[in-house]
Amino acid sequence: MILVTGGCFQGKTAYACKTFGIGREEAADGAVCPPEEIYKTKLLFHFHEYIRRLMETEESFSLEALTRKNPEIILVTNELGYGVVPTDRFDRAYREKTGRVCCQVAREAKQVHRVVCGIGTVIKGG
């Protein structure tokens, strides 16, 4: 498992596709794909949106299931939580949840990359 994170519009998915040799058409969009796609795809981008959708349908993310069914997956996520605490309750819960899930994923991942201005830095497992 590999985690790629960074701010929005930093070229994270393009960086991940290029770095790991994956065609964009092979990548799943976490904002719209069927939930079970995460267990099949090589790369899932908008992972934070995937988490949001799980929260909206009151499902929980299982790292154990993902590790078992798709251990080589590359997850691309926005790095949330660098702003003032949102006033909306769901927004607060969502950014908190994304943080906790991504911490879990990062601990499990063999590599973590952080992308700024399209440039990736390996911050774990380099």
Partner: peptide, 11 residues
């Protein structure tokens, strides 16, 4: 330092 939910407290 870090964002919220980034694992600062645990570290």
């Amino acid at each position: 330092t870090g964002g919220s939910g980034s694992g600062k407290s645990e570290y």
